[in-house]
Amino acid sequence: MMNFYNQGKPEYLTQHKQTDSSQVRLSVALVTRNRPESLERCLKSWRSQTVAPFEIVVSDDSDENYAPKIEDLAKQFNCVYTKGPRRGLYANRNHASLNCRGTHILSGDDDHTHPQDYVERILEVVESDRQRVWIFPERNYNEPNAPLLCPPELHRSGCGCTPKDPSDCAAIADGSSVYPRQIFDQGLRYDETYTFGPLWYLWGKVLRKYGWKISYSDATFIWHYALSENRFSNVKQLQNLLESTMYVLFVNALWIEPSLQNIMWSILYLSRRSICQDTMLGYTVKTRLGIKSVLNLLIQTWQFPNKLDSYQSKDFNKN
């Protein structure tokens, strides 16, 4: 049985202010995988808030040897625990969001911590307009005085660029965005084609296409404990990242914002990454896309409308 936040609150939680039932009910859709130490730090931060969220859903994509520790932590901090689908980061984000019961869903990552008034500030912003997506910035934990910047939106290269109008943009902050739950009720989902990659750029474009307004606020932020990872020297990982990047670019050019100009830019960057070695931010190696990767991303791109239709035709149960 799932241990929901409002069932059997531990004593230390009763000291915090609770949201009124007539107000926004903020669910936290927190994804995690194989990082119990990081998750514990994150949950301590969540449970130190001046205003407690309505619930915290921990969706766990961990391997079997990590899962028991993750589940114990979720119970210790009185969270909903659910096993993730193990199909990649964005399948896990969908799973976490679909297990939320609040009026609004706040995406969360296990390598984040938060100012103590994080939820309080977010509720104030959301109350100003409940029918839009709100995105919030991040700071690296070892750069405490770094400026707060709007997250990037999709650039013609497949990477990110600063939005021209942060109050009405296609940017997404993967671990600090707030979505009205109607978005998921109407069948919209993060794209799950790749287990990892810049699919958040595509998510922002899809939301805009379906009429949702996305706005940036610097009323609060998250601390990001960026971890050094072996993948930054892994050629295979880089190839997968380049493939998913080009997939995002082609889907946008053909299905989301179709135009001859977007198609031409996509072909140009695909040719460049197929002929010349390229890299991505943080990586210490270079590689190029092979014929197999190019064919796969083009096939996946062509199938995108069917994926979107399949999401919207499903009857998803909400807890």
Rank of each mutant, 00 (worst) to 15 (best):
L199E: 06
R87H: 14
L202R: 02
F77G: 14
K44T: 03
R93K: 15
A226P: 11
D63M: 09
G8L: 07
L295A: 09
A52K: 00
S266R: 09
H155F: 02
N234Q: 12
W223E: 04
R25Q: 00
V133F: 03
V24Y: 01
L227R: 15
P163E: 13
S45R: 07
P147N: 05
N6D: 09
Q49V: 11
F304K: 11
N319I: 15
P198R: 07
K286A: 11
V294R: 00
H114R: 12
C79D: 14
R139G: 11
R208K: 14
V51M: 06
L207P: 01
E37H: 11
M280E: 12
N240V: 09
I267V: 07
S59D: 04
N296H: 03
I275D: 04
L202S: 06
L295W: 02
I267A: 10
N252C: 10
L73Q: 12
I275S: 03
P166A: 13
P53Y: 00
P151T: 05
G187N: 03
S27T: 06
D72R: 12
D129A: 13
V285E: 12
I70F: 10
A67Y: 07
D315C: 10
W134V: 11
G8S: 03
Y269H: 10
W212C: 03
W223Y: 13
K318H: 10
R93Y: 15
P258L: 01
K292C: 08
A96R: 12
D63V: 10
S177F: 12
S107Y: 13
S228D: 09
W200A: 15
T220F: 11
M264G: 04
A146M: 15
H114T: 08
L238W: 10
G8V: 01
K213S: 03
R130Y: 02
C276N: 01
D63Y: 09
E257M: 15
T301D: 06
F221D: 05
N65V: 14
Q131W: 02
A226L: 15
Q182N: 03
I56A: 05
T103K: 09
Q15F: 03
Y311M: 00
D110Q: 11
C159S: 13
W212M: 01
K9I: 04
A219R: 06
S228E: 07
T19G: 00
T193R: 13
R272H: 08
T279D: 07
R47F: 11
L188H: 02
R132C: 13
T193M: 14
N319T: 14
E120N: 13
